[in-house]
Amino acid sequence: MPWVDGVEHRFVEARGIRFHVAGAGEGPPLMFVHGFPQHWYAWRHLVPLLADRYRLVMPDLRGAGWSDAPYRGYGTRDRAADVLALMDALGLDRVGLIGHEWGAWAGFRACLDAPDRFTRFLALNIVHPWPPARHQVGGGLGEGSNGARTRPGGGGWVRADPEHVAVLVRGLSVATAWPCRNCSI
């Protein structure tokens, strides 16, 4: 297992799965949920920056790192349920949540399913799932922000149109797309 100064490791049972959880620090809990194909080590550079102020909780999602890899259960709803079950297993009523890629999608779902469990949420490296209509390009999700991922040849269209990329970057900022009150890390 990769070594990072100040990080301790444990295994927790949740939803019938054995999850590996790396942790460091003291204070209000911040849970970091990695993307694919990563594990807790993706957050290693944040440990020395935040562990003096926060309790960092960095689980390996199912099938990643040192957690069990069951045959099923890799959808967004399952990952969100895993996050909530891990919080229960760790005795965490509320956490600040930071998710990257797959972890960000799971974070959005977990925040929708149990909003009172989260003090704040930061989604990294995803297009916002529900962009405001004024920021959509092409009139709808199929032709707008998700068009680059869902339409055949969409990726080339985005690369060929720098203005489209600029609209997405300007329009889908955290401040405009997911307003949050009292959010600070």
Rank of each mutant, 00 (worst) to 15 (best):
F108T: 08
A110S: 05
A89L: 14
E101H: 03
T119E: 07
A148P: 10
P129A: 09
W102Q: 11
F118I: 01
R120K: 09
I98N: 09
H164Y: 11
N146S: 12
L141R: 05
F108Q: 09
A110P: 02
R109P: 12
R149V: 03
G142N: 13
W130P: 01
L97A: 15
G107S: 14
L84F: 03
R134S: 13
A89M: 10
A104E: 13
G139R: 08
P131R: 05
L90N: 04
L97Q: 13
R149Q: 05
G99F: 15
F121D: 02
W157F: 06
A160H: 00
G154W: 04
V127R: 01
E101D: 13
D161W: 00
L141G: 09
R120P: 01
G144K: 00
F108V: 14
A104I: 13
G153W: 14
A133W: 13
S145V: 07
A110I: 10
L141E: 08
R94N: 13
T119C: 11
A89G: 14
A85H: 01
G144W: 01
L84Q: 06
V137D: 07
D93E: 08
A114L: 06
W157I: 00
G142Q: 12
W105S: 02
G154H: 02
R159M: 09
G154V: 02
L90M: 10
R109E: 15
W130Q: 14
L92H: 03
A89R: 10
D161C: 07
P115L: 11
W157E: 05
E163A: 15
S145N: 07
G140L: 04
L141W: 05
P162F: 09
L124Y: 05
R109A: 15
H135Q: 00
G147K: 00
P152Q: 06
M87D: 09
A104K: 12
G96Y: 10
G155N: 13
G155R: 14
G138W: 00
H100V: 06
R120E: 02
G144L: 02
W105Q: 05
A81F: 01
G154N: 05
L84N: 00
G103A: 14
R159A: 10
G96Q: 11
V95R: 02
R117F: 01
L112A: 04
L122C: 13
T150V: 06
G91N: 08
R117S: 04
L97C: 07
G147A: 09
P129V: 02
L141F: 08
V127H: 06
A114Y: 07
A160R: 04
D82S: 15
D116Y: 04
A104R: 13
I126A: 10
Q136E: 12
R149D: 01
A166W: 10
G91L: 07
G91I: 13
D113E: 12
R94V: 11
H135A: 10
A133D: 11
A89D: 07
A110M: 09
E101C: 11
R120N: 12
V158I: 04
